[in-house]
Design a protein around this nucleic acid. Structure first.
Lengths: 202, 202
DNA sequence: CGATTCTTTGAAAACAGTCAATCTGTGTGG
DNA sequence: CCACACAGATTGACTGTTTTCAAAGAATCG
């Protein structure tokens, strides 16, 4: 009884992640404690950065609420969004964090966003000490990989207009939540073109 | 001595994979034996299929030599290549194999290709029994994910011509090895357009 | 209310696709 | 060994989608 009560207390800020993990893998109670002891909660204000170009990425971020964007500044000076970080999604610059090289990207909060933060150092130890956590992360990487392959497929096989229609029907609420110019960038066309599409549909 | 000799014998068809794994993770000798006991060598003739649309994908393929292509037939009847499987690359339809759902894709040998085959069932057992193998696969998924993110970046940020130039300078030998129409499909434009590019460059 | 940020509009231009015909090379069967 | 068939590569005219540029119009925030 007492232990259970303590458990709930301790998990308070972490239960969303533990619940998510439990969909894919099974951690022992001891491993849950070990994992959560390494997590740090962070509230990121709108437009604040978790990563900027030139920095070596040192953390993995698990989004609890809000929205992050992962983008780069291209040579013409414009921003190109490559990914969004939505709740229950892990985000990091995996190339930078893995090879300890400076990142080409920015990770910025689109709106007030809550994340759990895990250092590379702690993550490596956890991968080593908790096989079930390593397996969970393997499945997350596989999921992210298939999602990005699907995006490549959409960009290769469908017109800009079809991509817009498909995305808005799949994520109608998310589309409302972010500025249109970010959606346009993510989908791979200009804000002007998106504006034209919307005019046609109304 | 005797054991070492036997080892080499047993590893004969598998040492390429074991060598590749050793770059990312460390398997005990017993775990190497367990892994290799589950691998099956397969020679795939040019144009033969490892997966066809409608089938549930049941295997992971590790390419030893040759080249596989991962593609789909789009509604206009044309083939769209999404990935190539080159030596030391794992290829599968991870969505189909994971969710046990029919695949939308084909995996076909571009030329005579050698692969190692692992069933989903055996792979799941290995992930469970050999944490280091699970970690290796986590890193492979992460690598594949970053590679496909990089491709999305190229498609969003660079013109068709720039993508062609970048790809041919990065993989000059691979470009020679495959038909031009496959390269064009992979890079996201038409064979005619590619032909025009080549005419300009000569 | 003013300043900034975001969205919309329209015209001109660029980029890449489509269609159709021709050319090239390669391998196979007569 | 030649002739034919077929797969792949090339060429050019035409079409269409999306971008660019420039300006004006909303919306949001301090």
């Amino acid at each position: 009884m007492k232990q259970r009560h303590l458990t709930l207390q301790a998990m308070n800020q972490h239960d969303q992640l533990l619940k998510h993990i439990s969909k894919f893998s099974t951690l022992t109670y001891e491993h849950e404690l070990l994992l959560t002891s390494k997590l740090r909660y962070k509230l990121v204000e709108k437009k604040d950065f978790l990563l900027q170009e030139g920095q070596v990425c040192t953390h993995y971020y698990f989004v609890l609420s809000g929205c992050l964007r992962f983008y780069k500044i291209i040579n013409t000076g414009f921003e190109q969004i490559l990914q969004f970080g939505i709740p229950n999604w892990w985000l990091s610059d995996y190339r930078s964090i893995n090879d300890q090289r400076p990142s080409d990207y920015y990770i910025q909060a689109v709106e007030k966003t809550e994340v759990l933060v895990l250092t590379k150092h702690d993550a490596d130890a956890l991968f080593n000490d908790i096989p079930a956590f390593s397996s969970y992360f393997r499945l997350m990487m596989q999921k992210a990989y298939t999602a990005s392959l699907k995006k490549i497929e959409l960009m290769l096989c469908e017109s800009a207009e079809d991509r817009y229609v498909e995305f808005t029907t799949n994520f109608p609420d998310f589309v409302q939540q972010i500025p249109q110019y970010m959606l346009a960038s993510f989908l791979g066309f200009t804000p002007q073109f998106l504006s034209g599409l919307r005019a046609k549909k109304l």
